[in-house]
Simulated scan of single mutants.
Amino acid sequence: MFARLLGRVALHGAWITVVLAGATLAGICIGETAIPVSTVWQTLANKLLGTGYPLDRIDQGIVWNYRLPRAVVAACCGAGLAVSGVILQSLLRNALADPYLLGISAGASTGAVLVTVAGVGAGAVSLSLGAFGGALSAFLLVALLARASGGGAGPRAAGQIVLAGIAGSQLFNALTAFIITRSASAEQARGIMFWLLGNLSGARWDNVGMAVPVALGVTLLCLWHARALDAFTFGTDSATALGVPVRRVQALLIGCASLATAVMVSIVGSIGFVGLVVPHAARFIVGVRHVRLVPAAALMGAIFLIAADVISRIAVKGQVLPIGVITALVGAPVFALILVRRRPAR
Rank of each mutant, 00 (worst) to 15 (best):
T181Q: 07
S201F: 08
A135F: 01
G50Y: 05
I180W: 07
N94M: 12
G318M: 10
L171Q: 11
G22Q: 06
V212E: 06
R247K: 09
L92S: 04
Y100V: 09
T240S: 13
D56I: 12
S126C: 14
S149H: 11
V244L: 03
A148Y: 04
A336G: 10
A153I: 10
N199F: 06
S201A: 15
A189L: 14
A75N: 10
S266I: 04
G107W: 00
A14W: 03
A184Y: 12
A336P: 00
G217H: 01
A186V: 13
R313L: 09
S90H: 02
V320N: 06
L6H: 08
L229H: 01
L200M: 05
F139M: 11
G123V: 06
T43K: 14
A298N: 10
T236W: 06
V162R: 02
A315C: 09
F273Y: 04
T39N: 09
L6V: 08
G133C: 14
W15V: 15
V86S: 02
V73E: 05
A108C: 12
L68R: 02
R57T: 10
Q319M: 15
T116H: 07
R147A: 14
A148H: 05
F172H: 06
G80K: 04
V113H: 00
A79G: 14
V334H: 07
Y66N: 13
V117D: 05
I267H: 04
G324C: 13
L321Q: 03
A143C: 09
Q89P: 13
L101G: 14
A251Q: 11
R67E: 06
L11T: 10
S312F: 03
R343K: 12
A135Y: 01
C76R: 11
K47Y: 07
R190H: 05
A108N: 04
F335R: 02
A74V: 05
L114K: 00
R283I: 11
N46I: 06
V277A: 05
I28N: 07
L339H: 05
R57K: 15
A203R: 00
G119R: 10
A95P: 15
D230M: 09
I58C: 12
I306S: 03
V37K: 02
I30C: 14
I311M: 10
V316S: 12
R292M: 04
S185I: 09
L216M: 12
A153Q: 15
F132Y: 12
G255Q: 06
D206P: 08
S105R: 01
G159V: 13
S238P: 03
P344C: 08
E187C: 10
S169F: 09
A184N: 09
A122H: 15
F2M: 12
L305Y: 02
V113N: 00
S183N: 09
R343P: 09
A45S: 14
L175P: 05
L136A: 13
A257I: 10
A158H: 04
F234H: 15
L175K: 03
